[in-house]
Design a protein around this nucleic acid. Sequence first.
RNA 1: GGCGAGUUGGCGGAGUGGUUACGCAGCGGAUUGCAAAUCCGUGUACACGAGUUCGAUUCUCGUACUCGCCUCCA
Length: 458
Amino acid sequence: MTEIKLYNTKTRAKEVFTPIDDANVRMYVCGPTVYDRAHIGNARPVVVFDTLFRLLRHVYGHYAVKYVRNFTDVDDKINAKAAATGRPIRDITDETIEWYHDDMDALGALRPTHEPRATEYIAQMIAMIEVLVEKGNAYVSEGHVLFDVNSYDAYGALSGRSLEDMRAGERVEIADYKRDPMDFVLWKPSTDDLPGWDSPWGYGRPGWHIECSAMSLDLLGDTFDIHGGGIDLQFPHHENEVAQSCCAYPDSGFAKVWMHNGFLQVEGEKMSKSLGNFFTVKDLLEQGIPGEVMRFVLLSAHYRQPIDWTAKKAAEAEATLRKWRALTDGIEPSANAASTVVEALADDLNTPKAIAAMHELAGKGDAAGLKASAALMGLLSDELGGWNDAVAVDDKVSGMIETLLDARISARQNKDFARSDALRDGLAAAGVVVKDTPKGAEWELGADFDAAKLEGLL
RNA sequence: GGCGAGUUGGCGGAGUGGUUACGCAGCGGAUUGCAAAUCCGUGUACACGAGUUCGAUUCUCGUACUCGCCUCCA
């Protein structure tokens, strides 16, 4: 069996991955807050952990891996959007989830085994908060339930910071109802115009962190193998999840391996709406950048490194995929992915190295091996294809092109090279790609084909 | 202010205590009437300074710069 190594944020080391149960490998990844279209940065963890999901299924078996990714559908940003638009919250979250599915499908991401919505786990959250209150890890204050960070000795271990360090910072918000400025909210009161549920502490709604603890417990148990998300979630979100889960279930250990992907930038700058470099996946699809190209770019850097989204990378990725698709078109994939590709992925998901290995397969002309290996990375599939297909042609157009090519052959035979070059340039200008092969000229239509430009060439 | 990550050839991007990453671009060649496409060949780069070592891009320390988190954020 392939030995997988993963970098564990918790231990700050690359470790051999040993599942708790080979027949039930469990992974939880923090999903989106559903209030708006997913941007290209949101797509990174989706693609990264999708690739890990594929690798785990490859190694442990298709049905031996359980992957949970949540939807946060109770959140102040959603409330704000509802208030601004007058739309019911559920409309907004349902619609956003649909968008998310569409966009992530376009990136070739498999649907997780479970995609729980926070609002469907309120009872489990309340139950966990009650346990924390009973155990003395949480306290009620002015209608809020707060987690007492001083009740958990290991608080800060995941993110490598101590309470003293954090208090030393100047940006800690102090609230009157907190015993310690670092205490965080498990439950907060709601007014009538906000979503809320009855609870032992009155009408209210959950804090942000408790949902992941409650849903992972319900779907994966009190201990599971891998917990993933963006590096920005390491603190405070994941630190707080650990505190909640480990205090509620002290012997569980919660997630064994913590994985965090690096941030994405755009053309060297932080992506932000004010800079005008804010792209949703949908925006890029509409610009004609295929989802497969986005996926390739996202996998072209190691997941823990920062990555810069650039138009140049997208163009290079598209050229590579075009070449590989032409090579593997109609080819039956070999039974197994190449060992070089599997080994690269097994080494802490080294996708750039895996891509290099695929380049070598392509260089050797091993189309079947390339196709099988690409499948492991979610690339070169039929579902993601189509974007590279030549433009469909009608008989009239193809007849015209054939006539022009015949005229070019005649001109060349007569050594009228000015004429033959003019015909060639004219075809190129019209978007017809002509390739001279030993068997004669082949042609196909480029994306910029314009039939009108063929007129008058004869 | 606190904590952490990074700095590799023209660009992107892996990796390693002493040997080729890989891709793109470039250059040379084959092919071509000339091109395009294709094929072959070609690249000693690892921020700076000091240290450890027989030997460091690879380990240690320091400096500079970049970035992230500490507040909603993927």
